[in-house]
Amino acid sequence: MNEAPEVVISAGRSEAHYWRDLWRYRELLGFLAWRDVKVRYKQAVLGASWALIQPLVQTLLLTFVFGTLAKMPNGSVPYPLLVLAGILPWQLFSSAFSGAGGSLVSNSNLISKVYFPRLIVPLSALAVALVDMSVPLVLTIPCAAFYGIFPTWRLAVLPVFIVGALLIALGAGLWITALTVKYRDFRFISPFILQIGIFVTPVGYRTDNLPHWRAILSLNPLTGMIQGFRWCILGGNTEISAIGLAISSIVGIVLVATGLWYFRHTERRFADII
């Protein structure tokens, strides 16, 4: 009976078992994500088709605004397809970011009643975003085929950019969610970021024909991910800039590292102040 592990609880000690506990509670991550996916479309008549309607409407809208009205260059890719390939990572990012950003406060009943590594909560929001994106992603392939663009080996690289977009969302989301625990002001900031984000991120247009803005746009870590998505899905008619990608990666890594640091730093007080 003596092999039962001894746990020592004292001030500042929560660090010691953290990553081990995170691994031990990995199933909870799955359960929380599964709960959110399952509950999301309950009592909605159209159910999961909302996951399709949203990107579809956004694609049409952005195609109209940027392609038809503003007559932005399409670089020989059908404009709707160009937008769709940008909407996919954007949706992934925005649903992961807003999910992770609100995750702690919306699960405050759990935080104040049960112990588990709190990082599980924002991580499960990423999983939900991933599930949400999977259906439109799969349907993009026949859409591209309709315009005569068929998948190539580049599609195999796509997971890299998916993970990239999720990590950026995680970094930003960790900051927002940890700050929201203490300052509810940040609840209003994330929708604001998303509203601006969809325009300062090349979702509805492409950057290779905007030489003046390119440098500034690539400071936005999502720019690299969106270029990546287009490069993987749309094939030869798009390009990926190494410098842009490098900047995206660096900004993304810094965001994740500082987000993790701040989250871990404030985590032990969550239950007291939430």
Partner: peptide, 16 residues
């Protein structure tokens, strides 16, 4: 004791 919040001082040893 349930590790929901941390103590300010002191130590608890829990076996199991």
């Amino acid at each position: 004791l349930s590790r929901i919040t941390e103590p300010t001082h002191g130590t608890i040893r829990v076996r199991g």
